[in-house]
Amino acid sequence: MTELVKVEDLSITYGRADRPAVDGVTFSLAPGESLALVGETGSGKTSVVMALAQLLGPGASIDARTMSFEGHDMLRMRGKALRALRRERIGMVFQDPFGSWNPSRKIGTQLLEGSRGAERQRLRSRLVEILGRIGISRPESRLEDYPHQYSGGMLQRTLIAGALLRGPSLVIADEPTSALDTTVQADILALIAQLQQDRELALVVVSHDLGVVARIAERTIVMYHGRMVEDAPTAELLTSPRHPYTINLIAAVPLLHGPRQRRLGVKVAQGLPSLAGCVYAHRCALATELCRTTQPELRQVGQAQVACHFADQSKELLEAAE
């Protein structure tokens, strides 16, 4: 089985920054697979997907051994061919349902932009069909509306419809529900999960919210300061996280059930990580001299790939350290 997406050793540096924003990211994605990139602001998760779609401007220098999508070398794709590939094969959904639309043009006009004649008619009827399926009532007439006449949840649904319109093989969703209410969020996530299964779409979702990830991704990569710290099946990651950062991240989520939490997460250190050792060493309760000087590589522990010198015993060690 060939991979739909293959990224090897991706690093991204912005401008003349002394450290890369993304460093050594490696993953592949099979057709129909769903993957989440999780991490806090500045962890590089958005940069990774933007680089994959070649959407980063000239200020970013991208370096990778491989970065391919459907067999195309994305590092060398430019101009018309790149635009056609993005238009036809990659659907994108972004965080801000209001910012994703031009407020002065009709919804339908924006979604069908760039298509003419018979193709436009075909896409239009397809759009109406998709909109109807994802719960927009009277889709035909709603295409004549402007964005301000839609609610946030509807705009986000419509954006998803637009992303699916041309039958892509990959959908990239960057914080697709972060700007929405809990109830709407649940709806949108259910919709994405269902569409992904029905259409055998590959999905890369970027989020800082583990709840979102738990809902729609089979596999999750946790990023910290531009590096992958853990890569595991989502259920495995959430139930038995191995990297101290992942453990901390999960402990930071306030839970509605279970025993009352006295503290959330673990105390956080200030400052930037060292360039030499583990990126998490300056915040980690387990850090030793080894961690500060030698960067841990990703290695297999159980079902997970973990970049921690103490991955086999991190949980016990952290409990002992408390």
Binding site: S151, A186, A214, T234
Partner: peptide, 24 residues
Amino acid sequence: GAAMKVSVRGAVGVEAAEESATTP
């Protein structure tokens, strides 16, 4: 119900409960 659907625990422990009236 909606909170549980998007909670860490909810997705791991049990698959989403019954579809509740969460459409705004």
